[in-house]
Simulated scan of single mutants.
Amino acid sequence: MNASRFRRGLFLTTLLGLVYLVHDYATTSWIDPTMPLSGTVSIDGKPMTKGLVRFISMDPDLPKAYGSYVKDGRYEVPAEFGITPARYQVEFSSIGAEDLQRMLDSKGALTEVQEEIPARFNRNTEVEIDLSAGNVLHADFDLR
């Protein structure tokens, strides 16, 4: 009877230890904390009518990118597609959802799409944002 109690206690202790380890691992390692982000984009003080904003991680251990369409000067990355806290380069493009759809519909035919954002805000962006603290939920950009 004493050995049976010992085995039962050992089993429960082992089970509780495994549950704790699984919980600890799940909450700290493989689930990246994410947050929503929204804000405005303007060019020389005027709202960007349409386009894209992309957040590209500057952390080599976190090679992630996030993005959102810009419409009437506003963008939003919702919580379910949230951004992981890190430092990011921010790229802007005047090519909007309609332009992308037109390119897809052309099925390989040459479609002219004009990028109106200067390279220093686009492929050669100089814009960076530090979201590593995890508490920034709103960020406005005025491209000048």
Rank of each mutant, 00 (worst) to 15 (best):
E126W: 07
R8H: 01
L16Q: 07
L12T: 12
I117R: 00
N122L: 03
M103I: 11
P85S: 10
D105N: 11
I31C: 00
E112V: 02
R7Y: 14
G45I: 00
L12D: 05
N2R: 15
T13Q: 04
R7V: 15
R87S: 07
K46S: 06
I56A: 14
V113E: 02
V70E: 00
S29R: 14
S68R: 02
A97Q: 11
S4W: 12
D59N: 08
G73V: 00
S94A: 02
Y20A: 11
L10T: 04
I129L: 08
Q89K: 15
V90K: 10
R7A: 09
V53M: 04
G67P: 08
I31R: 06
T40K: 09
D61H: 14
K64Q: 12
E76Y: 10
V113M: 07
N2H: 14
K50A: 09
G39M: 12
T13R: 13
T14H: 13
A86K: 03
T111E: 13
R74Q: 12
S42C: 06
M103V: 15
V77L: 09
E115H: 08
S57P: 04
F141V: 01
L16F: 15
T13V: 10
F92V: 04
G96V: 02
D130E: 04
D130A: 07
L10Q: 07
I43T: 06
V41E: 05
S42K: 11
Y88G: 11
S57T: 01
R102G: 00
A79E: 11
A97W: 00
T34K: 11
F11R: 02
S94G: 13
N135F: 09
P63L: 01
D59M: 04
N122C: 05
G134A: 11
P33D: 13
K46H: 13
E128S: 10
G134S: 08
P33H: 08
L110V: 10
R7I: 15
Q89F: 15
A139K: 04
P78T: 03
D99T: 10
A26V: 04
G39R: 05
H138K: 09
G67C: 07
L15M: 10
I95C: 05
V22P: 09
M103D: 01
F55M: 04
I83F: 03
D72G: 09
A79F: 14
D140R: 01
D24E: 14
E116M: 03
N135V: 13
V90D: 08
P60N: 05
H138A: 12
S29M: 11
P60M: 05
D105Q: 12
D72E: 15
W30C: 12
H138S: 09
Y20H: 11
N2Q: 12
M1H: 04
G39H: 02
L137E: 06
S93M: 03
Y25D: 06
G45W: 02
A26H: 13
A86E: 12
A109Q: 15
A139C: 06
T27F: 02
L21Y: 05
R74A: 13
V53S: 01
K64N: 12
P63A: 05
A109E: 13
E115S: 01
